[in-house]
């Protein structure tokens, strides 16, 4: 085992996380996509997606989570989805849009909320000094 694997929580938590994190991600996307037919929506789906990544981070330590989802990817996807969202809503004023609004608006909101909250969590964890002392 590499030294990265030894960080984080115990073996039980890691195994359960490996099994469940994919389903949590899938559920977040489902909640975002069917928000117009059932309870849910882009915001709730985005928070569930962020919780899935935070789950990985709490169980395996921050190196593994940040290797899976780099900081540059986070920033680029937040910015791109914000621009697409702005375009859709502003295109509504002139009455035409090239996107299917029922799919794209929740997906963009999910990307902004999910990646943004994970970025906030990562920044706060990296900022706190006591974590650095402990490791």
């Amino acid at each position: 085992m590499s030294p990265i694997q030894e960080k984080g929580m115990s073996l039980i938590v890691k195994t359960v996380t490996k099994l469940t994190v994919g389903f949590i991600l899938l559920y977040g996307v489902y909640v975002a996509l069917t928000g117009h037919l059932s309870p849910g929506g882009g915001f709730a789906g985005g928070v569930i997606v962020a919780l899935a990544f935070i789950h990985v981070m709490l169980a395996f330590g921050k190196e593994v989570a940040l290797r899976r989802l780099r900081s540059q990817t986070l920033r680029v996807s937040i910015g791109v989805s914000a621009l697409i969202f702005l375009y859709i809503v502003m295109a509504g004023f002139s009455g035409r849009s090239i996107f299917n609004c029922e799919i794209t608006i929740p997906i963009c909101e999910m990307a902004i909320v999910g990646f943004g909250l994970f970025a906030i969590f990562t920044a706060l964890v990296l900022l706190s000094k006591t974590d650095k002392d402990a490791e």
């Binding site: 809503v89 608006i105 909101e109 906030i120």
Partner: peptide, 23 residues
């Protein structure tokens, strides 16, 4: 949600985006 209040959702996303950039 997607026609009458799309601007509302845009405002919500803008608030969150600004908070993320600030943090």
């Amino acid at each position: 949600m997607l026609n009458f209040r799309a601007l509302d959702t845009l405002g919500e996303a803008t608030v969150l985006f600004t908070a993320i950039v600030g943090v």
